[in-house]
Protein backbone atom coordinates (compact mmCIF):
# COMPACT_ATOMS: atom_id res chain seq x y z
CA UNK A 1 0.00 0.00 0.00
CA UNK A 2 2.95 2.34 0.45
CA UNK A 3 3.91 2.55 -3.24
CA UNK A 4 1.69 5.01 -5.10
CA UNK A 5 -0.33 3.33 -7.85
CA UNK A 6 -0.44 6.50 -9.92
CA UNK A 7 2.40 8.74 -11.10
CA UNK A 8 2.71 12.49 -11.24
CA UNK A 9 1.05 13.80 -14.39
CA UNK A 10 -0.85 10.57 -15.02
CA UNK A 11 -4.42 10.83 -16.34
CA UNK A 12 -6.90 9.37 -13.88
CA UNK A 13 -10.67 9.15 -13.62
CA UNK A 14 -12.44 9.90 -10.35
CA UNK A 15 -14.96 7.14 -9.70
CA UNK A 16 -18.67 7.88 -9.68
CA UNK A 17 -20.24 5.96 -6.81
CA UNK A 18 -23.45 6.15 -4.90
CA UNK A 19 -22.31 4.94 -1.50
CA UNK A 20 -24.25 5.30 1.72
CA UNK A 21 -21.26 6.05 3.97
CA UNK A 22 -19.37 9.26 4.60
CA UNK A 23 -16.71 9.90 2.00
CA UNK A 24 -14.86 12.97 0.79
CA UNK A 25 -15.56 12.99 -2.95
CA UNK A 26 -17.90 15.81 -4.00
CA UNK A 27 -20.50 14.85 -6.58
CA UNK A 28 -19.32 17.55 -8.97
CA UNK A 29 -15.94 15.83 -9.40
CA UNK A 30 -17.17 12.26 -9.73
CA UNK A 31 -16.73 10.69 -13.16
CA UNK A 32 -14.29 13.36 -14.33
CA UNK A 33 -10.78 12.82 -15.67
CA UNK A 34 -7.84 14.85 -14.41
CA UNK A 35 -4.10 14.60 -13.89
CA UNK A 36 -2.15 13.73 -10.76
CA UNK A 37 -0.81 17.09 -9.54
CA UNK A 38 0.74 15.86 -6.30
CA UNK A 39 1.21 12.55 -4.53
CA UNK A 40 0.36 13.06 -0.87
CA UNK A 41 0.73 10.87 2.19
CA UNK A 42 -1.16 7.89 3.56
CA UNK A 43 -4.29 8.65 5.55
CA UNK A 44 -7.23 6.83 7.06
CA UNK A 45 -10.21 6.35 4.81
CA UNK A 46 -13.23 8.51 5.64
CA UNK A 47 -15.46 5.52 4.87
CA UNK A 48 -13.95 3.33 7.59
CA UNK A 49 -13.24 6.01 10.21
CA UNK A 50 -16.94 5.95 11.00
CA UNK A 51 -16.63 2.52 12.61
CA UNK A 52 -12.96 2.28 13.45
CA UNK A 53 -9.57 3.79 12.87
CA UNK A 54 -9.63 4.47 9.14
CA UNK A 55 -7.85 1.26 8.10
CA UNK A 56 -6.46 0.60 5.61
CA UNK A 57 -4.47 3.82 5.45
CA UNK A 58 -4.60 4.85 1.84
CA UNK A 59 -2.64 7.07 -0.55
CA UNK A 60 -4.05 10.53 -1.10
CA UNK A 61 -3.50 12.50 -4.32
CA UNK A 62 -4.23 15.97 -5.56
CA UNK A 63 -6.02 15.73 -8.89
CA UNK A 64 -6.06 18.70 -11.22
CA UNK A 65 -9.19 19.10 -13.35
CA UNK A 66 -9.95 21.53 -16.18
CA UNK A 67 -12.81 23.85 -15.22
CA UNK A 68 -14.16 23.75 -18.79
CA UNK A 69 -14.42 19.97 -18.43
CA UNK A 70 -16.14 20.12 -15.02
CA UNK A 71 -18.75 22.68 -16.02
CA UNK A 72 -20.08 22.66 -19.60
CA UNK A 73 -21.16 26.30 -19.27
CA UNK A 74 -17.89 27.49 -17.70
CA UNK A 75 -17.24 31.03 -18.80
CA UNK A 76 -13.66 31.68 -17.65
CA UNK A 77 -10.32 30.87 -19.25
CA UNK A 78 -9.80 27.41 -20.74
CA UNK A 79 -6.64 27.29 -18.60
CA UNK A 80 -8.55 27.59 -15.31
CA UNK A 81 -8.10 24.56 -13.04
CA UNK A 82 -9.64 23.02 -9.99
CA UNK A 83 -7.40 20.92 -7.77
CA UNK A 84 -8.97 18.45 -5.38
CA UNK A 85 -7.78 15.78 -2.92
CA UNK A 86 -8.89 12.26 -3.82
CA UNK A 87 -7.99 8.92 -2.19
CA UNK A 88 -6.43 6.18 -4.32
CA UNK A 89 -9.40 3.81 -4.05
CA UNK A 90 -11.53 6.44 -5.82
CA UNK A 91 -9.15 6.65 -8.79
CA UNK A 92 -8.68 4.55 -11.92
CA UNK A 93 -6.20 4.97 -14.78
CA UNK A 94 -7.58 6.79 -17.79
CA UNK A 95 -6.30 7.39 -21.30
Amino acid sequence: MSEPRFALGQRVRIAARDVAVHHRVPAYAQGHVGTVERICGLYGQPETYIHGDGQPFTRLYRISLAQTDLWPDYSGSSRDRLDIEIFEHWLEASS
Partner: peptide
Protein backbone atom coordinates in the same frame (compact mmCIF):
# COMPACT_ATOMS: atom_id res chain seq x y z
CA UNK B 1 -8.37 39.01 -17.15
CA UNK B 2 -8.29 35.76 -19.09
CA UNK B 3 -4.49 36.04 -19.18
CA UNK B 4 -4.54 35.09 -15.49
CA UNK B 5 -5.18 31.42 -14.80
CA UNK B 6 -7.50 30.77 -11.84
CA UNK B 7 -6.70 27.76 -9.70
CA UNK B 8 -9.33 26.74 -7.17
CA UNK B 9 -8.12 24.39 -4.45
CA UNK B 10 -10.87 22.28 -2.90
CA UNK B 11 -9.72 21.19 0.55
CA UNK B 12 -11.54 17.86 0.59
CA UNK B 13 -9.38 15.65 2.79
CA UNK B 14 -6.13 15.90 4.73
CA UNK B 15 -4.41 18.96 3.28
Amino acid sequence: GNDVEVRVHDSTAEL
